Simulated assay, not measured.
Amino acid sequence: MTHTDISMVRRRLIGAATVWGLTAPWWAHAAPPAGTFIERTLHHPVPGGVAVLDLGTAATMPVANFNGQRVLVIQDADRHWKAIVGLDLKTRPGQHSLVVQGQPAVGFRVGSKRYREQRITLKNKSHVNPDPQQQARFEREYEEQMQAYASFREEGPSNVVFEKPVPGRLTSPFGLRRFFNGEERNPHSGLDFAAPTGTAVKVPADGIVTIVADYFFNGKTVFVDHGQGLITMFCHLSTFDVRVGDRVSRGDVVARSGATGRATGPHLHWNVSLNNARVDPAIFIGAFQA
């Protein structure tokens, strides 16, 4: 094994050991501190990004909130609590505060980021301007998804650094201003990967399946709750491999990619949500572009 390979293994083991109160390997003190690993990987405080904030070494896990939403808190190998805060695309650049029960607020700064545009032509005109019945269906489905995104389980995630859910190349990044048949719609809330129909979609962390459904825009869709407000969503699927309520482990196949819903061809759309804020999944797989 080369020196580079050993270093890579060490970095992955440190990250795995620190994401939820686990003890770091014996050699961790000779490497960069575990907290630094998490911050270096996830700390990108821009709209659509993530802020990693130190909450000290309290004996019990602090309870923290941002914009009225409970946030994910993990403990590193040095017993420092870290808040992993999702910042949605509407977050204004500038100074912000994290509210922590029984402690002073933690201030942090959000920078700016400019996202590109994407223009798509759809043959199915109802996927641009749905009729009243389709609109009513969309609204029901939207509410169901919003409830899933807003859920918070006390159990923490198994890991917060992910592998890609499919092996394909990235085709559409997060945050694109999207125009369908010339009409502007919501920005792109996830990542798109090239994935031929039937490609296995693997879950990036342990969790509980909360939605298995066929939606008007998203097509066949799976939601997985990983704990403490960390939610992942996979859509435009062809088939399902799980049911609501199933417990899944990191690397399990939850579905197969497809082209259902508002899609121009086979691919996987993948969302990551923290404290009910859709954030750039590229951050979690080390592919974030500043």
Results as ranks from 00 to 15, higher is better:
residue 2 T to D: 11
residue 3 H to F: 04
residue 15 G to F: 13
residue 16 A to R: 15
residue 23 T to L: 12
residue 27 W to C: 06
residue 39 E to N: 14
residue 39 E to V: 14
residue 43 H to C: 07
residue 50 V to Y: 02
residue 52 V to C: 03
residue 54 D to S: 07
residue 57 T to D: 05
residue 67 N to F: 07
residue 70 R to S: 06
residue 72 L to F: 10
residue 73 V to F: 14
residue 76 D to Q: 06
residue 76 D to M: 08
residue 82 K to I: 01
residue 84 I to E: 02
residue 86 G to I: 14
residue 87 L to S: 04
residue 92 R to I: 05
residue 93 P to D: 01
residue 96 H to A: 02
residue 98 L to V: 11
residue 98 L to S: 06
residue 114 R to F: 00
residue 121 T to N: 07
residue 127 H to D: 11
residue 138 F to M: 14
residue 139 E to P: 00
residue 146 M to G: 06
residue 154 E to S: 14
residue 158 S to E: 00
residue 159 N to P: 10
residue 159 N to D: 15
residue 166 V to H: 00
residue 166 V to S: 04
residue 168 G to S: 10
residue 176 L to C: 05
residue 177 R to A: 13
residue 178 R to I: 03
residue 179 F to I: 00
residue 179 F to D: 01
residue 190 G to N: 07
residue 192 D to I: 04
residue 195 A to W: 04
residue 199 T to R: 09
residue 200 A to N: 01
residue 201 V to C: 08
residue 204 P to V: 03
residue 204 P to F: 01
residue 205 A to Y: 07
residue 207 G to H: 03
residue 209 V to L: 01
residue 211 I to G: 00
residue 231 I to L: 11
residue 233 M to K: 05
residue 242 V to A: 02
residue 243 R to F: 06
residue 246 D to E: 07
residue 249 S to Y: 08
residue 257 S to I: 05
residue 259 A to F: 13
residue 263 A to P: 03
residue 280 D to L: 01
residue 281 P to L: 05
